[in-house]
Nucleic acid binder design. Structure first.
Lengths: 202, 202, 202, 202
DNA sequence: GGGTAAGCGAGACGGTACGTCGTGTCTTCGC
DNA sequence: GCGAAGACACGACGTACCGTCTCGCTTACCC
């Protein structure tokens, strides 16, 4: 009877936490973002507002945590990129998949909400980079490093820059709705990136 | 003699319009965006709320119009890029200047507000592309076409793609505060772009 | 040589005046009083707001004028009470008719609006007494004086008081919706009044 | 221990209720009625507007409740009329006191506001009759019944009618500002009423 | 019969208050 | 004894009218 108090509390807390985050997620996925209020989340979660404010300081933080929770549980393995030895086709596979993801309306709304919050809150942006962006970027950079070793990529290339050149155009086009995110477009980005950072020319 | 129709009437309307947009602009530049309320704009402009709602349907629209008005009056000339004949140095000049602009806190806030609105409103995004982005992009593409003719750029390059590869990384790094926007970074983007889309190799 | 200034102007003015008052009257008669706004009157009259404000200082004044205009044109004759020589039956006739008038919803609304305004505006109340109440009261007092001469009423009775005792209960019961205004009730008031102010007892 | 149901909850609610009604009362007593806005009441009470709208549907209802609250707590005793055995002098005492009350500017404003509301809202009028007018009328009728038993009043008289004949003239004169409410006027109303409804003649 | 000025309809304007909604805090009650 | 439920002070929302202020247009008078 070491601690009768602890375990149930934690379990209870954890449970309401999950309910709230899941409610936030579903609201963000299905509605315009300005309808996603703390009151709406509390109502959907069947929870008092105070239970939300006890844990997070603002709507932004809840929504951020909700999105963050999505990618948690995913271990290093699961975010690893394919490595067939052929960088170009591996990247095209990944870029096409990424482009396709953006087409899902729920994912689109979720990501726009996330971007809205981090664009206007430096602290959240830092947390985003640390907890969400970095792990993904590291996985991608691992694949690039493998390509460098295989002589398929300039060994002096700044991998962060490579990632930006590869992904940022897709991101920007999506954010500003600047055009369709077709497989051809995904391929073109990979081609351009490989021309820019491919093996040093003779 | 310009137009017989309602000269003083128009002048009156135009004046209040300018006062409102200017008030919106100054508020956006100096405060957190969620303090930029319609009431605050009306108060700063010395105007009734209804006078704002008569013209624009929402805060988003006012703010957007305020930013838009900044770039109006600028004719084709004024947005033309330098053309010394040396594409690389011309682009580096422009990219460094762009990177520097983002460092201005007022401009930063203005642009974040703008991006927040257009990310969440497809109609506004379309207007943004049409009225703000396109004219600038056309000016840039004019410079690139000139480079193509001079044999400094692949004649088959998709110029929209070139622009995205050049600018999107800068934009993304700024939006997500992913790192400092140094001159070296600006140069690196130009270098990468030119490697990707430079003259066709032999 | 009526007046050198704008003979037809007056006609124009007079016409719009009538249109406004009639619009006010019809609005008051058909809607809840708080929907009778100056804008609504102007719209119904097909008139600019300024045309109303040029003539009257407030909604109260317009409504008051509208009601007042109803009773204008009525000469002394037309408001004279019947005089058959039998005071009791003459008064009962009049009181029953008055009670019946209150039952008309349009008249009811009109009179409630009027009472609302004069209860809250001493100047309007004075004008009401002078222009609306007094002429009617004088007509009634004329009938009472005739009754005094005929020995049907105490020659020393204060006729203003007599009128109040006769009418005020009806007015109050109507204003506070204190009960039905039946013919029997009208008769009872006449009976009570005649008992109070009938011919002096021996 | 008085009642198990919501003791502290009720106390909190009750407190804000009292603060609001008291603020409403003081505003009505000291200002023109159209300055008595819901916002003004909320501000004076140090309360959010919503707290008012949670309890009452409109300004009318608040003001009415404020006036109503004045007379609550008054038990049957406290509204009983004097009964010295002499109806005439008892009534004159009461009527003179009533006339005097109307002279107090605060009371005047309060009562005009109340009458404005009940004249334009049948539901409020019904509540007024039930909660305010009736208890007072019952107290008065009790005195009249005592007079009937003492042979000072016609035993067949309709007491509601007696009250109207007695009070309505005073009320009307006050509402329309038809003249001064002097003690002599109060006496004259009592005299007239007693002549109308005094003991049956031989 | 053409010029002119007063009066008009229309409605924008700076304001005030409306009644509603969401915020973040605080209190109460029920499980 | 914690948490749902929701009241609370606050502040912005978007709307309705207020009373004032142009704006052209109409109209009816004057020469």
């Amino acid at each position: 009877m070491s601690n009768a108090k602890g375990p149930d509390h934690s379990r209870r807390k954890e449970r309401s936490r999950q309910v709230i985050l899941s409610a936030a997620r579903s609201l963000v996925a299905e509605q315009a973002y300005d309808k996603v209020t703390v009151e709406a989340i509390a109502a959907r979660a069947g929870v008092g507002k105070q239970t939300i404010y006890r844990r997070w300081p603002s709507r932004s933080a809840v929504v951020f945590a909700a999105v963050l929770a999505l990618s948690e549980g995913a271990d290093g393995q699961s975010v690893a990129l394919p490595d067939t030895g052929d960088l170009e086709s591996d990247l095209k596979l990944v870029m096409r998949a990424t482009a396709e993801e953006f087409a899902d309306p729920s994912f689109d709304r979720l990501l726009r909400a996330l971007n809205t919050e981090i664009a206007n809150d430096a602290a959240l942006a830092a947390e985003y980079r640390e907890k969400l962006a970095r792990p993904l970027d590291e996985a991608k950079k691992a694949r690039l490093r493998s390509a460098q070793e295989a002589g398929q990529l300039d060994p002096d290339a700044d991998l962060d820059l490579v990632l930006e050149v590869l992904y940022a155009p897709l991101f920007q086009r999506w954010l500003h709705r600047g055009g369709p995110l077709t497989p051809a477009y995904a391929d073109a980005l990979v081609d351009a990136t490989l021309r820019a950072f491919g093996p040093a020319r003779p």
